[in-house]
């Protein structure tokens, strides 16, 4: 059977969903990040000086863009798939001859689209505050795409395992946000005391933010190849786990 039409249908439905509710999905990150740029970048940043040769504003722009990509790719999939479960219209897909990999690809693609569109919107906002000439656009897009994929998969797993609306807010609030803020978005690893420099190397967000920052302004705290390998490894791991959950029907079938 040809599954491209089914895949296209899911992706279109997902993209249409977040575009239809753009005041909830696209507008808030534009406003929040504009405030970040204004307060941290302009008002406080001018007193901080430079980090690794970059102005503080230039230093935080990549991190804030990637933080938006992470939170929106995750929240798109977790809220959409959980609502689908909650309203039971997941049954439309289970009854239809749609293989599990198509369901997963469709929802993850929706998350990637939203993550990248939000990232693009935030990048546009950042241009009001900083003039950045992107040094490695290919690498920047690759890291953004891989990161969006990874967190869409994580959102999917969260939605599959969630049994209530509380369950879909726990990970974003108590895991993603702290890891993002502690992942070198607002500071360099060098600025931390010795012990914490070692601890922060265990935060996977640091590798994504640093690789993305290298793509934009050529400054990094980590080995770029290691970062790409790490993100790809996590993607493979979460893809396998998501397909296992779908195959077993965990969280969606009796």
């Amino acid at each position: 059977m040809n599954y491209s039409i089914a895949l296209k249908t899911i992706v279109k439905k997902e993209v249409h969903r977040f575009l239809r509710i753009w005041p909830q999905t696209l507008l808030p990150p534009a406003i929040t990040t504009a405030l970040y740029f204004l307060i941290f970048g302009k008002l406080i940043g001018n007193r901080i000086g430079t980090i690794s040769g970059a102005t503080y504003m230039d230093y935080i722009v990549p991190g804030i863009i990637l933080m938006s990509v992470i939170s929106h790719s995750y929240s798109n999939v977790v809220s959409s798939f959980y609502s689908t479960k909650f309203q039971r219209n997941i049954e439309e897909l289970i009854v239809a001859p749609v293989p599990n990999w198509v369901i997963l690809s469709g929802y993850v693609s929706g998350g990637i689209c939203r993550g990248l569109i939000v990232g693009f919107v935030v990048a546009l906002i950042s241009m009001l505050f900083a003039q950045i000439a992107v040094l490695h656009p290919g690498l920047m897009l690759l890291v953004a795409g891989l990161t969006a994929t990874l967190f869409s998969l994580a959102g999917f797993i969260n939605a599959v395992l969630a049994e209530s609306f509380d369950d879909i807010s726990i990970i974003p609030n108590f895991v993603l946000t702290p890891l993002s803020y502690l992942g070198g978005v607002f500071y360099s690893v060098d600025m931390l005391p010795g012990f914490w420099q070692t601890v922060i190397m265990g935060n996977p967000m640091l590798y994504m933010v640093s690789a993305f920052r290298y793509g934009m302004i050529g400054v990094t705290d980590v080995d770029i190849r290691l970062a790409i390998v790490m993100i790809s490894g996590f993607i493979m791991l979460l893809t396998g786990f998501s397909l296992y959950l779908l195959h077993k029907g965990i969280g969606i079938k009796n």
């Binding site: 040809n2 089914a6 249908t9 439309e92 239809a96 001859p97």
Partner: peptide, 10 residues
């Protein structure tokens, strides 16, 4: 329409 798409209808 979406259901038709899930069943592969062009």
């Amino acid at each position: 329409m979406n259901q038709a798409g899930y069943y592969g209808a062009p």
